[in-house]
Amino acid sequence: MSDPGLESPPYTEGEVLLSVRNLRTRFVTEGGDVPAVNGVSFAVRRGEVLSVVGESGSGKSVTAMSILGLLPPTARIEADQMLWRGESLLDAGEARIRQVRGAEIAMIFQDPLSALNPMHKVGRQIAEMILIHEPVSKKEAASRAVEMLNLVGIPQPAKRAGMYPHEFSGGMRQRAMIAMAIACSPDLLIADEPTTALDVTVQAQVLEMLLRLKDELNSALMLITHDLGVVAGISDRVMVMYAGRQVEVGTTDQVFYRTRHPYTRSLLRSLPRLDDRGTDALTPITGAPPSLLRLPSGCSFHPRCPLVKERCSKDVPDLNSGGLGHHPAACFYADEVSGDTASVVGGRS
């Protein structure tokens, strides 16, 4: 079966670092199985920024954590394929996964305190990360830690290395966590809502820094966010998720200017923009995101979709349903979506 999420037009010619095919992750709970991720496929190439965007609960974090084996024991992860630089992560042992995690794929979280130990000095934590993965002396590791703090723009890095996480401001903690994540020069950085808790001026600093680090390390960045503005500014490619499924995958310009999924289009129309004149009423999406325990039949978006037709509550669309010759969209009527999107984005200046 062809897998459009995986084979959608690559943005770079870079090496395929990660490729995931048909990932399904569910949680076993008392209320029943929660299908948090339902058949997600994608690839990340060296050099690119892939954004994963969707509302809270759409399965963004679970997708990332499934790859890194960071989920609780109630999680059941299945996939047809999960390759890290050609090596199957599904078949790798716990020890190998631990090695990949941190040294080859590093993760940055929304809440830096979840990754930093409050009892240890920041410099020591970064040095330990290096010592776990690399055969260097303690002294070398300590000086690399200071170098990393400097790289992420922390002033007086040598002095700061000797301080505890609570002595840092929110933005500095986020930078310290990033310093720890990049300490072993990972090939892929997965950042899960790295700026959601930060003020916009600090968000701008952190995003700029992530882009710079990606280039300096010659790596790739997978950015998870709910903010379409952040996506527009930073990504090469975008994957839009809704209720555990991918609904649209394409280059940033394709997704914003040649939108093919009604959910993506509705999201873009519902946002107030800094550059609109504040006169037009916004177009809200009716209803609310569904509970995963009671997913609507057929297309999960059908109860909220402005284009819904009879077929939508019967058949489940996949990324091929939008038809050939376009970027992938999981909608039977994708052709009706494109066309008037230009008046949504770009038409408001």
């Binding site: 001026t201 600093q205 503005g229 996506v231 527009a232 923009r273 800094l274």
Partner: peptide
């Protein structure tokens, strides 16, 4: 000015053409 310039706009071309003011440090 720095606040306005830091607010992301969901429009890739607009994002590429805007002037950026990236402040240093925190509040």
């Amino acid at each position: 000015q720095s606040l306005l310039s830091a607010v992301p706009i969901p429009d890739p071309e607009r994002q590429r053409s805007r002037r950026r003011i990236v402040l240093e440090g925190d509040v």
